[in-house]
């Protein structure tokens, strides 16, 4: 065909259709070819530098591919990232280890660090009962308010986390008459709404031994120490508007009076048990003293720490 090429000198392949359709063999632009060979070179370089080729046999660490001379792996990069984060955290953690909870709260920067990092601890250990933001759950106290049955200062909070708490109240179904239960239930509703209660109510309250736990004023305080601390057994403060067992009100109060709290063998009794987190039996591991310290600061800052 080439000998009778009607379009000589234009670098065609010698293939013609319909008189003048023909295939040319012009080279691609030079910049394009440079780009092409550069990317081939990059591909070769990459396979030398980085892990790339699958291998039919496994090497000593059980991986069947070429390693690349840089030794890069994604998991190594991830671990380096984690190390960097830990290096930053270690500085703060080292400082916190030598400080008390009070001292941490004096330092705004460390307080912020403690709050940010304890959020995870709180989520793991506390939020299941007390809610993600300390908003509480039916039967489990709100941590974001200022009502603390066992005391709301740093020492008391740390104590609660470390050793746990277990409330106790006698079931009065067999001790009080229906009339007396009704009177006392109405009495505590009245107190919670800011009422003073009649003399007869207070007489019944004292006569039935309520004051032994709920205190002479009904606010759960048995004694006030000279340093301002209060002595309690964890009995509810009947004079504030917060109810230990929700939803609160007459029926709720009556139920608690009748069946008590944590009474063995009493059906319908209220549950009020918090495990001690320094020696967790049922959960995997336990909290270290430093973790308890950080959680103490966290809970104290939720909204009502004293």
């Amino acid at each position: 065909m080439a000998e009778n090429n009607p379009f000589p000198g234009e670098n065609n392949t010698g293939h013609f259709w319909d008189d003048n359709l023909r295939e040319l063999q012009n080279p691609p632009p030079r910049w394009w070819m440079i780009g092409f060979w550069l990317s081939v070179a990059w591909w070769v370089l990459y396979s030398i530098l980085y892990p790339m080729w699958p291998m039919p046999f496994e090497t000593e660490d059980g991986e069947g591919y070429t390693k690349g001379i840089l030794g890069w792996t994604s998991i190594k990069e991830y671990k380096q990232g984690v190390e960097q984060v830990q290096a930053v955290r270690e500085q703060y953690d080292a400082q916190i280890a030598d400080m008390t909870a009070e001292e941490i709260l004096q330092d705004p920067g460390l307080t912020q660090y403690t709050l940010a990092s304890s959020k995870v601890l709180f989520g793991d250990y506390c939020a299941a009962c007390h809610g993600s933001g300390g908003q509480g759950n039916p039967g489990y106290p709100v941590l974001a308010d200022d009502d603390w049955l066992y005391g709301g200062n740093l020492t008391k909070i740390a104590e609660s986390i470390t050793n746990g708490r277990k409330g106790a109240m006698t079931a009065h179904a067999s001790i009080l008459t229906e009339q007396e239960v009704d009177t006392l239930a109405n009495f505590v509703v009245q107190l919670s709404e800011g009422g003073a209660g009649s003399e007869a109510d207070w007489e019944l309250y004292n006569a039935k031994g309520c004051q032994a736990c709920h205190g002479a004023k009904g606010n759960g305080v048995l004694a006030e120490l000279p340093n301002g601390d209060i002595v309690t057994v964890g009995a509810a403060n009947l004079t504030d508007s917060i109810w230990r067992f929700r939803p609160g009100g007459y029926e709720s109060a009556k139920h608690t009076i009748l069946y008590g709290v944590n009474q063995v063998g009493v059906e319908g009794t209220r549950d009020a048990v918090m495990p001690g987190f320094a020696q967790l039996g049922q959960l995997d591991g336990k909290l270290t003293p430093d973790q308890i310290k950080m959680l103490t600061v966290y809970v104290h800052q939720l909204g009502g720490g004293q």
Binding site: S132, G133, Q135, V142, A144, D147, S241, I242, G304
Partner: peptide
């Protein structure tokens, strides 16, 4: 703060964070 949106304090007042 969204959890809790608000908290009732012992004196009956409402606190937001």
């Amino acid at each position: 703060e969204r959890a809790p949106l608000f908290v009732q304090l012992s004196d009956g007042s409402i606190q937001n964070k």
